[in-house]
Amino acid sequence: MDIVISGLSKRYGEKTVLKNFNAIIPEKKMTFIMGPSGCGKTTLINILMGLVEKDGGTITGVPLLKSAVFQEDRLCESFNAVSNVRLVCENKVKNKEIISHLERIGLEDNIFKPVIELSGGMRRRVAIVRAVLAKSDIIFMDEPFKGLDDKTKEKTMQYVVDNTRDKTVVIVTHDIDEANILGGKIINMEHLKTIS
């Protein structure tokens, strides 16, 4: 089922972040939410994830099983990459499978280090594997490839494409190239830039 957003609005005090926003997010496809800083992209996916209450409008069709790559990595700092991924996985997902995914994304030498010791790019990739391996029907990704060098970004994007084929994926990004390479629907929020 597609996600249908109608007349969505959200204010923070005097600041209107979303006003009468309408969009359709197709099921089992990639959708890119684009637009300049402050236009409400993160607020929109936070509403879709159920982390922020909307002020008005309707949203239908959001699957119950969600996973996410947040704007910040939101990892458990003292635990290693495998533990961080296993935290959100079902018991049937074995360590071997988690390790294989982490290796595929170029983390083979850092799998058992506490994530606090990893670089920003490595931590980002742990967060991506966590979102991919969690049981979900929809994955929200807020600027998932930020902080990655070109080569790693390419590898990581391919990993996301290969492992999310049967899921709805919503990606917030500033980079049109990401949308062009990965392919999918683009929702441009530029004209909605924050109204104060």
């Binding site: 994830m49 159920g50 982390l51 099983l65 969600k66 996973s67 996410a68 947040f70 910040e72 939101r74 458990c76 700092e77 003292s78 635990f79 533990s83 935290l87 959100v88 966590r130 969690a134």
Partner: peptide, 24 residues
């Protein structure tokens, strides 16, 4: 709070929340 939100989105159970988030 951000880790607790993460746990909420991923539907992490109470025991895992205690072990991975609260205890550390």
């Amino acid at each position: 709070r951000k880790l607790l939100e993460m746990a909420e989105v991923f539907r992490v159970g109470l025991l895992r929340r205690i072990v991975f988030i609260y205890l550390p």
